[in-house]
Design a protein around this nucleic acid. Sequence first.
DNA 1: GGGAATTAGTCTCAGTTGCAACCAATTGTA
DNA 2: TACAATTGGTTGCAACTGAGACTAATTCCC
Lengths: 161, 161
Amino acid sequence: MGRSSKKTALGAGIRLDSFLPYRLNRLAGEVSRRLSAVYSGRFGLDIPEWRVLATLSSRGMATAQEIVASTRTHKSTISRAVATLTERGLVERTGSPSDGRELVLQLTDSGLRMMSELVPLVLEAEQEILGQLGVEERAQLLKAIAAVEAALGLGDEEGTS
Amino acid sequence: MGRSSKKTALGAGIRLDSFLPYRLNRLAGEVSRRLSAVYSGRFGLDIPEWRVLATLSSRGMATAQEIVASTRTHKSTISRAVATLTERGLVERTGSPSDGRELVLQLTDSGLRMMSELVPLVLEAEQEILGQLGVEERAQLLKAIAAVEAALGLGDEEGTS
DNA sequence: GGGAATTAGTCTCAGTTGCAACCAATTGTA
DNA sequence: TACAATTGGTTGCAACTGAGACTAATTCCC
């Protein structure tokens, strides 16, 4: 009780609205929520599953390990997502001839069909979210993100190809 | 099987490295992870607990409801965080005289002391993360985040006071 | 004033995730 | 070839989180 007379509360204070990690998190959470509405409803995908499909769609093929690295999602989470996607016939795994431990993943025809339906919807949602930003602002935002990632020592796993 | 000859994979493809929600999420997750190392270790706080303390530190006092709104964290999560913080003697709840349902929260002296130790460390970690960015770039990043939030129709709960 | 509708906060339950132990295949080394 | 160390992937377990039911207090409206 005896803290009333001093403004110590502000002395120890942090200004949350200019604290970048806080703002970043809040925004990312909200964006995630909106996007997931697109693929969870009609397509019955959760976030890790979407990430796997998106990565495969972006790369053509990949091992689970590569997906882990590029999405920075825990390997057990990816493993489970791949398992259910395989059961649903959207992804197929073939043993690598060069290394018998790894499984090469790629979209099945059915998976490709789903993605060709889903991707435009997701991109549309992205447009809606980024509505206010001009093309340049958008590019700057991406650049800023890349710079922070670089500062964190995160290599860009996605090649330019 | 028969998908090999066409480049359908790229036809249905999405370029993840220019897909903003994806980049945003990845970055926010990594930033969160780094920051939480600061307050989880010596101070034994988890993310929701940190958010409660930070909000109280920023505002002086607040109801659980206000913390829910400004952090966009689920009310049951906030409720649990407040409970453990109260048990630890870092936060105190007093019944509101005007509305008997709500509990007004504020940091105890002990909570204030902890925050005055913790906040500088957190800010230091922020500096480290944002290291590469110049002051202007940083401001632009905040501005871009605010613009996206506005596009999402998220009011700025933090007043300017 | 009195009953329906609303709001603050807590609690239980189910689903999700991360950690860590584990199995299998490969690589390095003698 | 044999044996340790490493790496890809899976699974059991524990902790965390969100949804939603529930209680208590308040407000709305007749």
